[in-house]
Amino acid sequence: MILCAGESLIDMVPRDGFYRPLAGGSVWNTALALGRLGAPVRYLWPISRDPFGEMLLRPLAEAGVDTGACPRTDRLTTLAVVTLTGGEARYSFYDEGSAGRLFAETDLPPLTPDQSALFIGGISLVPDPCGATIATLAARAAAAGLPVMLDPNIRPFFIPDETEYRARLDRLIGHAAIVKISGDDLAWLSPDQPPETAARALLDRGPRLVLQTGGADGAIAHTRDHRLTAPAFRVEVADTIGAGDTFNAGILDALHRAEALARLDRLDEPTLTAALTHAARAAAVTVSRPGADPPWAHELT
């Protein structure tokens, strides 16, 4: 069982001069994509009892995602207003006092023996108390030997204290077995280094696998033994919402099916190549249609 812990929200997406509410959030998208791909997945994040909360739970249930551990609250759901420029998504967040923002350590369930990995990332890592809660969960998982996958998905405008956030992110990288990092993330983290140099340097901080993504330029996987590349699949782009989140799900799904999450120190080239290809193919389906709408398993066969 793959545990995804982190934000869910409502994306207010422009469409024909109006805004359309769509369920989303970086970690929510990854959980949904994993469920649609057929992977065993559990989602953890406070869900509001407002109408938007039901919008978030319904797709997860349809995809077979276990949401039984999600605390329910009367606080409101986070909103993200999306601006699209050339198909690229930019966000403004309405999050103060929201259901997820006040996620506390007392809301954390115990880790269970059936869990094979923990996925974390996105804006849920930034503010407190939710950021501290996710950091605590990651530390517990790493101490228990559970592989942690981290996608920081950095939104600089959402970070009130850069020094504090960099320190938290440094600790989380140390707990992570897998880090997915985009070109924008690398430019923010290591502006004075070439992207590939900065990505590979993360291996010295604890992770066994670093995934460097570049949108239409494809992806590069770094381990101590390998440097493998995978081109992006060419499609007509509707928008990029949820593309990286779907890529994350594709990687975890492939590694889970190959029983490789427990042997990340010994990843072989065929397994890693297959995971990269699976993730890129899944992400290509997502960018080909509006919003975060990841593929079902049958769409990739």
Rank of each mutant, 00 (worst) to 15 (best):
V82M: 09
A135V: 03
A135H: 07
L172A: 13
H175A: 14
P110S: 10
N153A: 12
L125Q: 11
L172H: 10
G145N: 02
A63E: 10
E96A: 12
S92F: 13
A99G: 01
R166W: 04
L79R: 02
T78Q: 10
I159W: 03
R155E: 07
V81N: 07
T73K: 03
R166D: 15
A138C: 05
R101C: 06
R155A: 03
Y165K: 02
L146G: 06
G64S: 05
T78S: 12
A63D: 14
P127S: 09
T106Q: 14
I134T: 11
I173S: 10
P129Y: 04
L118V: 11
P160Q: 08
E96V: 09
L172I: 11
E96K: 08
G97Y: 05
R140E: 12
P110C: 09
A69P: 13
L118W: 12
P147V: 00
V148T: 08
D128F: 13
G145Q: 04
D170S: 14
A177T: 06
A132H: 14
F103P: 01
H175D: 15
A104F: 10
L169A: 09
Y94F: 14
A132M: 10
V81D: 14
T77R: 00
A138Y: 00
D66F: 09
T133N: 04
G131W: 07
R101I: 04
A176K: 04
E162C: 08
I120T: 06
A138G: 03
F158R: 00
G87D: 01
I159Q: 01
L108V: 03
A144P: 11
H175C: 15
L79F: 09
E96C: 05
A80S: 14
G64V: 01
A69C: 09
P71G: 06
D128P: 15
A143S: 14
I123P: 01
R171T: 15
A69E: 15
I134M: 08
H175T: 11
F93I: 04
A135Y: 09
S92E: 15
A135G: 07
A104S: 14
T133S: 05
A141H: 01
D151I: 13
Q115H: 10
R155D: 07
C70H: 07
P110T: 05
G86P: 04
L79P: 13
Y91P: 02
E105K: 10
D107S: 03
T77Q: 00
I173N: 02
A142I: 09
T67G: 08
D161C: 06
A138H: 00
T83E: 15
A142P: 13
A167Q: 11
L137V: 06
R155C: 11
E62V: 05
P113K: 01
Q115L: 15
E164A: 15
D114A: 12
G145I: 02
P147G: 01
P110M: 03
P109A: 07
S98H: 05
G64A: 08
G68M: 09
I159E: 02
A138M: 02
